[in-house]
């Protein structure tokens, strides 16, 4: 893969990554040299510096690595608070932060969750930059 060919259809760019996610596919970068998973994909591996990064579908299943609830939200998300967010360790080794569709009190470290994807809500579209408007939002659901 050469970087000079990057365009908005390439999953190593954000538009390419979110287009695949909208279709239900979570793509990760995988370093050919050290196996580090990079979410979202990008041209270089942060673990070892290699530029031999391939793009591969990632399991959407994982476990809660850490979690909290947002009681003092940014203005764009005020109506949703308090809401639960977590760092999830996915089955293929990558980690991803996202909302959890559960009350804080019902979540524990180690819980099994699955990544789902939805369209942005009206307030989310309003808070989005022009190029983000149609990007999907991922949410973890408890298993």
């Amino acid at each position: 893969m050469t970087d000079s060919s990057l365009d908005a259809t390439d999953p190593r760019t954000l538009p390419g990554f979110f287009a695949a996610l909208a279709d239900g596919t979570l793509l990760g970068g995988v370093c050919a040299d050290c196996e580090q998973v990079l979410l979202p994909p990008r041209p270089a591996c942060y673990a070892c510096g290699s530029r031999a990064v391939t793009v591969e579908p990632q399991s959407r299943e994982g476990r809660i690595f850490s979690y909290t609830a947002v009681h003092t939200p940014p203005p764009a998300f005020a109506a949703d608070a308090p809401y639960t967010v977590a760092v999830v360790e996915l089955a293929d080794g990558g980690r991803l932060l996202g909302r959890v569709d559960a009350d804080y009190a019902d979540v524990s470290i180690g819980d099994s969750v699955e990544l789902t994807v939805r369209e942005p809500t009206a307030p989310e579209r309003e808070a989005a930059l022009d190029y983000e408007t149609d990007w999907p939002v991922h949410v973890f659901e408890q298993q």
């Binding site: 954000l14 990554f17 979110f18 979410l39 979202p40 947002v70 003092t72 939200p73 940014p74 764009a76 998300f77 949703d80 809401y83 967010v85 991803l96 932060l97 996202g98 909302r99 989310e124 989005a128 983000e132 990007w135 939002v137």
Partner: peptide
Amino acid sequence: AIEQRSGVTAP
């Protein structure tokens, strides 16, 4: 791309 759009805050 991921963190801000998920509504996280500094705390």
